[in-house]
Design a protein around this nucleic acid. Sequence first.
RNA 1: GCCCCCUUAGCUCAGAGGAUAGAGCAACUGCCUUCUAAGCAGUUGGCCGCAGGUUCGAAUCCUGCAGGGGGCGCCA
Length: 586
Amino acid sequence: MPQPESRTPSFMMVRDRLKEQIRSAVESAQRTGALPPFEIPQFDVLRPKQAEHGDYSSNVAMVAAAAARKAGGAQSNPRAIAQAIADQIALASATSTGAGSTDAPLIGSVEIAGPGFLNIRLADGWLQAQVPAIIAAGAAFGNSDRLAGQRWQVEFVSANPTGPIHYGGARNAVLGDALAGVLQAAGANVQREYYVNDGGSQFKWFLETLYARYMNLFGHPVAIPEQGYVGEYVIGYAQLVRDDVGDALVSMDRAAALVALRPLGRAIVLADLERELGRMGVHFDNWFSEQSLYDEGLVQQSLDYLDARGELERRDGAVWFKASAYPGCDKDEVVVRSTGSPTYLAGDIAYHYDKFVRRGFDKVVNVWAVDHQGHVARMAAVMRALGMDPDRLIILLYDLVKLVRDGQEVKLSKRKGNLVTISDVVDEVGSDAMHFNLLSRGPESVIEFDLDLAVAQNNDNPVFYVQYSHARICSIFEKAAAEGVAVAGTPADTALLVHPSELALVRKILELEEQIDYAVDRLAPHNLTHFASELARTFNAFYRDCRVVDPDNVALSAARIELCRAAQTALVRVLTLLGISAPTTM
RNA sequence: GCCCCCUUAGCUCAGAGGAUAGAGCAACUGCCUUCUAAGCAGUUGGCCGCAGGUUCGAAUCCUGCAGGGGGCGCCA
């Protein structure tokens, strides 16, 4: 059978190809006089909910009817217009078959239904030909070039460097990581960045706590400051400091010791953050220091820049950013206190100046918890004040995670010390279950996560369902190899795949591209968890209906092995994007 | 008071202006001589918070209202 050798991993999405074919069919119909001349309006190609309505449907005839009527044409019945378009599509498909084309025709049939929908069914031959193409695409399957050439940054987590991250931060981590993944899949050059807030008061209180714990190790009764961190983990950090420098800080005066402690404490807490995030498979390309903005004078530089543009004002001894001049902001914001010390916003202005002006990212996504929503309009104002298009900065807000244990909500607080960390939850439910759970809902929904239930219902967790399917595929490969029927990777005639469950599986696999595109569109990857479940379910239906390993039909077995490999390709791809492992046995 | 988000099956949630609103869990009924039954098939379950509007068509867009959550600091 003809193999689509020329197809690259990023071939045009089916939906877009259909749209193109429909458009040219309309134009052909207009040329032949079947349709009156009119400007082709915006129309949709979408996936019908009902399977009987085909693989795709289009409302082109309905929206064209209005346009035709407006153009004064006699033909304005949507169903009649649909018929004219369908005729042209059928004609085009029939004539494109020959001419030595390596591409099988995409469209199998077109039907007219309801008020004038065009219901399109993909051709079996085309579907069969996609199986080797999917396998060939491998880890790149589902990629597109939609964002090719663009430099993106996703800044996420960015929890204060004062100790382990609480569970709510896990949502930020999985969301940012998955988002960065789909942006990369869409062709963008993506940097994952963690903004380290080592320049503010929280870090200062952390250092003072660390100092107190350190001194306590040597029997000196230094009290933990009132705003310090009482969690016992700081004792562990203090022991690491002692391991590193011994009693060198004990004899120093307090101020000098704190200065010396700054890089030590920073390194210790960052190592802890990195390790903890690493346990969930989340890794950053860059850890950006807030303090460095001050050390390099960038805060002053960007404030001077705003001042020169007339965006600042001195009032009541403080320096204000005139945010109220911008939409969504009802008041000005202090950037330098009357005490002379800059506010957090001053650092943030410099930080974003750095992101866009110095480092030149085309787009930046900041993943923030919803309690920072007041900061969103402010940052848009900052962008405008810096003379940049505010659309280049995208703030992705996600709502909170309510952790429930023993029927009661667990309050998360580093200060109180009854910390529930990411590691705690990874220990309890596992990284994979946590990823799936936190990524199966939209960012704006509140998640109530019952730890007891998660443990008790381990087997009912959808993530296991999906992983089980993958393990099942691997098991089939072993079985096939053991029986000497077919080895994965041997050439096969995928035209033998004609069973409805086989073709349904190919269809579902091919949907991944659109799912990734949709996630990029919305900058929210939660549709991918649902897709993963659907893909697994579709595979299981195929598994039920079609025996893969059959010594009496080696050719068919080989073709089905290839289909399994294609399914595996898609499963691994979507699980990888979600930060979930694909175990070979369970 | 002003601003933002949410409200869909008993529960947790999807739903991209399209046709008869979907999954999972829970409940009930079947299916292992079989490549993983950690699976599959089926049944039950809905004034899509309420009321208007926009249009060929609204869970989806607009307005108002109710309920829930969050934000409005010379905090970060």
